[in-house]
């Protein structure tokens, strides 16, 4: 007789043991918190009991006290980088939130196209008289260029020294695929943080079997434009996002639930 038989011969009691020994105390799901204007009910418990919580809004949603406080992954935009600004924060409460969110999270996700494109172009002669167009191949050139790479390294060094977190971003091929998937007709299309983060979730094998919940979606009927002045160039980098079009794309993601109202 096997030593384990004594357990297996008592299926009812084993069931009781099983019911108390969950594999995970947190639910195997990913919550993505976008930067909309939240007006729904309190979903803190749902979010805090999720295994992974990704915040795209630097934790501002925590101030609502309805969208939980757990943060595992933080999306950081090159042009709105909280740690550099920590000491300049006038609002103590937000300062506290920013600090706590950085203490809690283990990963930073970066939008590879934004900072690579911009930083590389700052030092480039090529685009003095030419309007740059964002594409995977341009990012690849930037990635492989000495100056682009050294700026990237400096940036990562700064992030790592301050936060000791894992830093992840899409590769240029994956970025190209995202542009293709969104099906944008615009030049210099810049995927929104939500579209970018959901693409990262899709590519990250850890989340292969997880359900994804999106909260606090940023809604906008018009196309979003961001103008980035390029030093040494007479052109600005005009980035454009189309949230409506992206919505059609992300709402078709498998295992993804977009929660625009309260969750049942």
């Amino acid at each position: 007789m096997k030593v384990t038989d004594v357990f297996n011969d008592n299926p009812e009691v084993l069931k009781i043991i099983s019911s108390h020994l969950h594999k995970n105390k947190l639910e195997a799901r990913v919550c993505v918190i976008d930067s909309g204007d939240y007006s729904g009910g309190d979903v803190s418990e749902f979010i805090n009991c999720s295994e992974y919580v990704i915040r795209l809004d630097y934790g501002k949603s925590m101030a609502t006290q309805k969208l939980g406080f757990k943060t595992d992954i933080l999306y950081i935009d090159r042009f709105n980088f909280a740690p550099f600004e920590l000491n300049k924060m006038k609002n103590n409460f937000l300062n506290f939130l920013y600090k706590s969110i950085f203490n809690d999270s283990t990963e930073i996700w970066l939008p590879v196209h934004l900072f690579l494109m911009n930083e590389w172009l700052l030092g480039s002669e090529e685009f003095k008289n030419k309007q740059p167009e964002i594409s995977g191949s341009l990012i690849k050139r930037s990635w492989n260029s000495e100056i682009g790479r050294s700026i990237l390294n400096e940036y990562i060094k700064h992030l790592y020294m301050h936060n000791k977190m894992n830093i992840k971003m899409l590769s240029f091929k994956e970025f190209d695929l995202l542009l293709e998937s969104v099906g944008s007709d615009f030049d210099n299309y810049s995927p929104s943080p939500l579209a970018y983060a959901l693409e990262m979730v899709k590519k990250d094998s850890r989340f292969r079997y997880y359900e994804i919940f999106v909260f606090n979606r940023l809604k906008c009927n018009e196309k979003t434009r961001v103008k980035l002045p390029l030093e040494k160039s007479k052109y600005d980098l005009n980035l454009i996002s189309d949230l409506e079009k992206e919505y059609h794309y992300i709402s078709n993601h498998s295992n993804t639930c977009i929660v625009d109202n309260d969750i049942n």
Partner: peptide, 22 residues
């Protein structure tokens, strides 16, 4: 045991993994 794990989860907000009986 279940009570303790819930308490740990509540106190530390950490994921707790273990082998289930199977």
């Amino acid at each position: 045991v279940s009570l303790v794990m819930d308490k740990y989860s509540e106190l530390y907000k950490k994921n707790i993994s273990m082998l289930n009986p199977e």
